[in-house]
Design a binder for these strands. Structure first.
Lengths: 183, 183, 183, 183
DNA sequence: TATGAATGAGGATTCATTCAT
DNA sequence: CATGAATGAATCCTCATTCAT
């Protein structure tokens, strides 16, 4: 049930964005009553928050998997992993991603999501630091922002070819980090 | 009057995002009556559209100025100009920028803005094509997206130092284009 | 079970009044399921009605005990008994009493409670008639109203000293009945 | 408009009590839209509060008029005035009075009404103190409660004869104060 | 033209009641 | 019998838009 509601909510966001996101619509789309929605989520905001938390969590998992072996690999390899994870995570539902990002930015965010956000930033920053990247916190922020921008836009334009997009993102990231492409 | 309304609308978006953006609030903030707002704008959406159009137009002006002399300058110089124009345009009101970008993506956009958008893309693409960048349309899209992502995020984090941000964006862009930094 | 539900209902009324009185809250407070509540009471109103009936019944018992020996005692003594019974009954849970009185007045009351109400009035009226009080029905109504008003208010102000309150009510009642205080 | 809404609200309370008191019903009865109701009252509670404030204010006026000349008159005369004011105020719309009293007791009351309430109590208490009544604060409370109880109940029973009711209340009040009826 | 009161559809949330397990 | 998830009508409140002045 919780899954049905969350998936309905995701689809509403994909189709109509935050403007179309209302509890009645979500409930109807999920095939449940509004009452049931409120049985599982204290309110509209909580539903949105859970959607955000889940997406963040998925991304975190992908990045963490890459970060785990960061010590054993060289910087380009680690960074490639990050890029691949980010693309895999964000390319399929770009409109959903964009709506959640906007909501995340505007809404007063709960502590848990805030922590998750910070820990994502730190995961990336640590991996970069490990390989001697200067000002790793800023670099992590920049690279995330840059990647997110490119992938979201590519998604909105209907791109599905992961390989091409990955190559383009990599060029920008390598450039930012001062890694030669032949590296 | 129109100016007062538009500035009020911008401030509302900055303060509370799209959720706080309603005609009554805008009119009050502008110090005019709702009636007057409707005298000058057929509706809420039109007001938002005008805001978008103006911002786009400003960016367009900045880019065009750089593109005008593209033939006489080398690629790094042209690209630097674009970056500087984008940063100048977007760094000061990042919350406004983000809201407008979200609105632009979600709303059914009028033909005029659509044309403006396309012409921005073409302006950049042409300049890139002029210097032999392969697939200039995609490159223009990627570089815009990348820059927008970085600048918005920097703005939201309170950065105001244009120089540092410019240097970082440049590294990514140069990387993407395969221009050596010493070039 | 029935007792647990009724006590929970009473506590909810005490804490939050009629506004807070809903079946889910009562069931939860009683530690039973809503389903069980509906097993024993046909609905919310019936639960309230039972609460009213019980309180009325308790008061009736107290008054009847006094009325039973009315013939053998003089008017002041009988009246003292009534006052003491009313105070004992109403001083401990004034917020509950007030809510039930309000509900009783507003709700379409069932026949049984109506009969109980009438029989309380008649019990007092008869005792008064027995001692030559003129227009005993009106007097019974007036004295009940007067006592209820004073006791409820005293309760809401946190009074717990029965003796002082009793003395004050007695003065009013004696005055109403034209009984000298030294009688 | 404000008057129309308040009168509609009063009628709804009279007809159906607090349970029937909802913004849609009030607006419809007043012949205005819900929107208009919210133009003049920030919410349902504020509407109720205004109703309470007005009733309190009216009572206050009546009592104050009597209290003004308290020094020049003897106690029975002053008290008669209070009783007459209370009856005039409360006998005509007993169901409204009862609902407002219940609401006043249960709702978190705003500072202004609280002050009004206190000042009513003090007005009566001062007048009593002036004539040597011991513990005037408690006496004021008791007499108000007693009178309110009797008048409300009389009203609910359809009494309209002010003279008879006044005589009965006077007996109780005089008795409470230890004033001989022949005084 | 400017005003802002009035409108009412839309959307968030609650809660009495039912019913499958 | 007991449970409590599910339902959806009812209710509060907001806000885009209109229109009389």
């Amino acid at each position: 049930m919780v899954e049905a509601i969350l998936e309905a909510a995701a689809r509403i966001l994909e189709d109509g964005g935050l403007a179309a996101f209302n509890t009645n619509a979500v409930a109807e789309r999920a095939g449940v009553s509004v009452g049931s929605l409120y049985q599982y989520f204290p309110g509209k905001t909580a539903l949105l928050a859970e959607l955000i938390r889940r997406r963040r969590s998925e991304l975190m998992d992908g990045l963490q998997r890459e970060a785990a072996s960061a010590e054993q690999r060289d910087l380009p390899s680690v960074v490639n992993g990050f890029i691949r994870a980010a693309i895999a995570h964000q390319l399929d539902r770009p409109r959903l991603a964009t709506s959640l990002e906007y909501a995340e930015m505007m809404l007063p965010i709960d502590a848990e999501t805030e922590a998750l956000k910070r820990s994502i930033a730190e995961t990336v920053a640590s991996a970069l630091a490990l390989h001697g990247v200067p000002d790793p916190a800023t670099a992590a922020r920049d690279l995330s922002a840059l990647t997110r921008g490119m992938v979201d836009t590519a998604g909105l334009f209907g791109e599905t070819d992961t390989t091409s997009l990955e190559r383009r993102v990599r060029r920008a990231v390598y450039g930012y980090l001062g890694i030669g492409l032949n590296a």
